[in-house]
Every structure is written in structure tokens, then in C-alpha cells.
Write a protein that binds this DNA or RNA. Structure first.
Length: 489
RNA sequence: GGUCGGUUGACCGAGUGGCUAGGUAGCGGUCUGCAAAACCGUGUACGGCGGUUCGAAUCCGCCACCGACCUCCA
């Protein structure tokens, strides 16, 4: 299992060589969505980032178990919600069962992921299906002495944990600073310290989503589900944990604390965090009211959108930036991405027209090595794309005859595009079905030959009319030295 | 206020102590009857001020601006 993959580990703040704990097996856990609302552009970022990682690890022949959870127990929306459960609140508004809301948005998330060509994870566990495991984990933490029960709720004892371990190591936070930064003293009566967090919360009588436990009828703390489910499916120590940078603190910090307190071991070996998508320089988030859903992007139905953008345009747009950089949304950037994507796929589509030469002016193996180098360098997809555009140039030049490829290099080029464009970047052609394609092709042949006749007779009025009329219905003609190509706009 | 990150040409976006990605748009050219596509060429780029260095946009310091996170409840 040779690899040369380096990934940036948020824990050490350095690029580190990736080596799984038990090769060839590799465990990958990524924080999935809370399904209380439509999937938005921000959700696409981690999904695509870790899809690329999943695809690459598979390509390197690791046996990857990719776990991406669904949070369906519900979180608070924002301060204005006064503690009411997010999913519960939405349910009241729409007069639906909480699980009906969950189902609806989970289905739509799955459909959007399919549209973006994001592969399904190996396991997609739901928090509501792992209440028992979460309760067991709480008991373990209590047994080890790092949690305490107050009035039916259980809290994590951060101060005690920090005496033996290091709370804040992932996010670079110092406990003393956190203490000094306490916002207010209200609502903290039950906890020993303001920075303690809930493992189990006693539910108010009107709370719908609640489960029985030895402490109270209530619900698990938010951070718990990821600790419990990652441990169940990947073990007490596993290889890679991913998620958005906004989850680094407190969510991931608390995950580390919970798992370490329970098992006495550092749970995650490599932490990876994707950066945010911004809109006009501000983070896109539901709570900020500036988010664009994927449906709106695909249909163009949002005041900020000048046109619809296809799923593959969005995917390409996201892959054109490195996952640890913010990427700012704008119509100009999306339009540029759309053109670039089409250029790439168009070249890929004509690769079979290249005829092998006796000799080669290009060495594809060098290009291939550069492509691997790009991915090995912390999944540098923008650099990979720049190399693939060198491939685009080679394809077009080979068709024009200004570059030559022998059979070995031609096959290598085809393989390069199949591996990197299709398999790893997960880009696919979006041209619609082929039902009427043959008929259309036959008709086009006839029209093209008629135009050729006119041109042979120097009847350019007729030939231009044919071309213009075709243009009008979205078909453009391209005269080449050795024939005529056509394509739908 | 604390912690962390960013500031690259018209736009997006990589990257490196000297060889200065890529996409989009613009301009010029080749090819075309014309056009399109493709190919070739092209640009006033690295926030400001100092410092280290033979040499910095890349390292260090200061400043400015922008952003993310900052425990309760979830």
C-alpha cells in the first residue's frame, strides 16, 4: 500500500504523511448535515471535499469505511429560539411529525448529493438510531469520573478533564481564556463551570423528541452522537475525521474530550477541516439568512443568481479552490467555472478523434506524475485542474496536428482523463439522454451536406442561412479542414 | 476583547526565496469566404511601511483592512 499522500492535520497544524493505523483498512468519519432545512451551497463543500478524499483513498487501494452521520435529533437554531429544539420548532410550523421533517430533508439532501455526483458513504448512521450507544458512552465517561449528574442532566467536567488531558488542543484554545471570556452568568446554575457542556439533557414536558434514561427522560447532547457513532463503526481510535472549520470549536473539541475521557486514548489521528463558502465576503449560513439552496442554484431561482448553474458547474467551482481556502460566491466566478468546465469536458469528449502517430511530441507520463503530485499535496485540486488543462491543450493540439501522440502516449492520455476527471474529481458530462440522438445526428448529416453543396457553389447566402437558422435553435456549426462539426449550445 | 486565518493582475484562484499555475474576460495573430471553435502570443499582480538577504510577492516585525470561531441552550 504505497502512497505519498500528505494531508494537513488540524491537530498539528502541519502537513503530515498519511499512514493508516491498520493498512489497508482506513476509517473516515465526516460530520453530516442536520436535516431540518434544504441543502445549501455550504453543505456542498464538505460533501465534495471528502468525496474527493474518499475517491482518492479508494483509488490508492485502501479499504475505506466512510461514515457520514445524519443529525436528526435536532439542535437549537439560534439564541432567539430560547432553547426550543430546531426540528421540533420546524415541525410545529409545518404541522408535521419531527421525523416527517427529518425524512423530507434527508431525502432532499440525498438527491442533491446524487446530483453533485457525491458517492454514498459506507455507513450513514442517524443520531436518533444510536441513543443507546450514546447513553453507554455517557456511563463510561461518568465511570471514569469526567461527568456529573445534576437534576436529571449530565454534564462533562471540563476542568477535571483538563487536569489530565488537554482541552483545547485542536482549536488552540486555553481554558483560562475561555473562563475569562464567559459571556454571562445566566442559565448556568446546574453546571460546575461555564465551559462544561451537556452530555444528557433532561427534557421539558412539552419536548417531543426525548428518550428514557437512567438520569431522566431527555435527549443527548449534540457532541455526543459523533463520538458514539464513530467509535461504534470505526473503533476507539480511527484515521481521519473531517468536517467544516466552523465545527472545530466547540463540536470537535468536545468530541475529543468525550472519547478521550471514556477510552483514555486520542480518538482521531488526522483532523481535516474544509473552509467556508462566503457570499459577499460573509459566511453562508442559514442562521445569517444569506444562504442559497442547491435547488435554487440548479434552477436559477434566487434573486442573487443571474442564471441557473448545473450541479457539475458547482462541483467544478468548488474543486477549483483548495478546500482549506474560503471561496467567495459570485455570478462572475460561477460563469467562469461553467465555461472552464465545459472546455474541459468538450476536450475529453473528442479525445477519441485523435489518431495515433508514429512518434510523440509529448510525454504523458510526466503529466500523470504531476497530477498525482497535486493530489498527494493535501488534495490540491486546483493544481490538478491546471495540469488537466494542459491535457486539454494537448488534446486540441493533437487534433489540429500541431502535437503528435504515439499509441502508448495516446492511451496514457485517455487513461489520465478517465482516472482524474471521471474517477477522482467525479466530473461527468451533463448532456441529456441519447434517445433521439441518432435521429438528430442523421438529420444533421443531411443538413450539413446540403450546406456543403451550397458552399461548393459559392452560394453563401444559402449556407449562411442554414447556419443562422441552426444557431437560432441552439445548434452551432464549426467548419474544420476535414469536415464540419456541430454542437448544441 | 481573545484565538486563528486571509489580503495575488479586469474577475475567480494556485504557488514559490531567484526559473513568476490554471480558468474566465480583454487585446493581437494563425486558420476560415465570413464566423465560431481550436491553437499561438499578450497584460499595470502579489494590502502598506520597515527589516533580513546578492536577491522577497514568498522569511521577520509593525500597521491597515477583511473573515471565522469564542463554552449557556442545541
Amino acid at each position: 500500500m504505497q502512497n505519498n499522500l500528505y494531508i494537513f492535520n488540524s491537530l498539528s497544524r502541519k502537513k503530515e504523511k498519511f499512514t493508516p493505523l491498520h493498512p489497508p483498512f482506513t476509517g473516515l468519519y465526516v460530520c453530516g448535515p442536520t436535516v431540518y432545512s434544504d441543502t445549501h451551497l455550504g453543505h456542498a463543500r464538505p460533501a465534495i471535499t471528502f468525496d474527493l478524499l474518499f475517491r482518492y483513498l479508494n483509488h490508492l487501494e485502501y479499504k475505506v469505511r466512510y461514515v457520514r452521520n445524519i443529525t436528526d435529533v435536532g439542535h437549537l437554531e439560534n439564541d432567539a429560539d430560547e432553547g426550543e429544539d430546531k426540528i421540533l420548532k420546524k415541525a410545529r410550523l409545518e404541522h408535521l411529525e419531527p421525523m416527517e421533517v427529518v425524512q423530507k430533508y434527508m431525502d432532499s439532501y440525498h438527491y442533491n448529493m446524487y446530483q453533485l455526483n457525491v458517492l454514498n458513504p459506507s455507513i450513514e448512521p442517524r443520531a436518533s438510531g444510536h441513543i443507546i450507544e450514546q447513553q453507554e458512552l455517557i456511563r463510561e465517561i461518568i465511570d471514569k469520573g469526567y461527568a456529573y449528574e445534576v437534576n436529571g442532566s449530565v454534564y462533562f467536567d471540563v476542568l477535571k478533564y483538563n487536569k489530565k488531558y488537554n482541552y483545547g488542543k485542536l482549536s488552540g484554545r486555553i481554558l483560562d481564556d475561555l473562563q475569562g471570556n464567559t459571556r454571562s452568568l445566566e442559565g448556568q446554575d446546574e453546571k460546575k463551570n461555564s465551559f462544561d457542556f451537556a452530555l444528557w439533557k433532561k427534557a421539558a414536558p412539552e419536548h417531543i423528541m426525548k428518550w428514557p434514561s437512567q438520569w431522566s427522560t431527555g435527549f443527548p447532547g449534540w457532541h455526543l452522537e459523533c463520538s458514539a457513532m464513530s467509535c461504534k463503526y470505526l473503533g476507539e481510535v480511527f484515521d481521519i475525521h473531517g468536517g467544516g472549520m466552523d465545527l472545530q470549536f466547540p463540536h470537535h473539541e468536545c468530541e475529543i474530550a468525550q472519547s478521550t475521557a471514556a477510552h483514555g486514548k486520542e480518538p482521531v489521528r488526522y483532523w481535516m477541516h474544509n473552509n467556508m463558502i462566503t457570499i459577499n465576503g460573509q459566511k453562508m449560513a442559514r442562521s445569517l439568512g444569506n444562504f442559497i439552496t442547491l435547488q435554487e442554484l440548479f434552477s436559477g431561482s434566487h434573486p442573487l443568481l443571474k442564471q441557473p448553474y448545473s450541479p457539475m458547474t458547482i462541483r467544478f467551482f468548488i474543486l477549483q479552490a483548495h478546500y482549506r481556502s474560503t471561496v467567495d460566491f459570485s455570478n462572475e466566478a460561477l460563469q467562469a467555472a461553467e465555461k472552464g468546465f465545459q472546455k474541459l469536458m468538450k476536450a475529453y469528449g473528442v479525445i477519441d478523434r485523435i489518431k495515433a502517430s508514429q512518434s510523440s511530441t509529448i510525454d504523458i507520463s510526466a503529466l500523470r506524475a504531476k497530477c498525482y503530485e497535486a493530489l498527494d499535496d493535501d488534495l490540491n485540486s486546483p493544481v490538478l485542474l491546471s495540469h488537466l488543462f494542459e491535457g486539454v491543450r494537448i488534446i486540441n493540439s493533437a487534433i489540429d496536428g500541431t502535437e503528435k501522440l504515439d499509441e502508448v502516449n495516446l492511451n496514457a492520455l485517455k487513461d489520465l482523463f478517465r482516472v482524474f476527471v471521471t474517477d477522482l474529481l467525479g466530473l461527468r458530462n451533463e448532456d441529456e439522454g441519447k434517445e433521439d440522438e441518432k435521429l438528430t445526428g442523421d438529420l444533421m448529416e443531411i443538413i450539413i451536406s446540403l450546406r456543403k453543396d451550397a458552399r461548393d457553389k459559392k452560394d453563401f447566402a444559402t449556407s449562411d442561412k442554414i447556419r443562422n437558422e441552426l444557431n437560432r435553435i441552439g445548434i452551432s456549426l464549426k467548419d474544420r479542414k476535414d469536415g464540419v462539426d456541430w454542437e448544441k449550445a
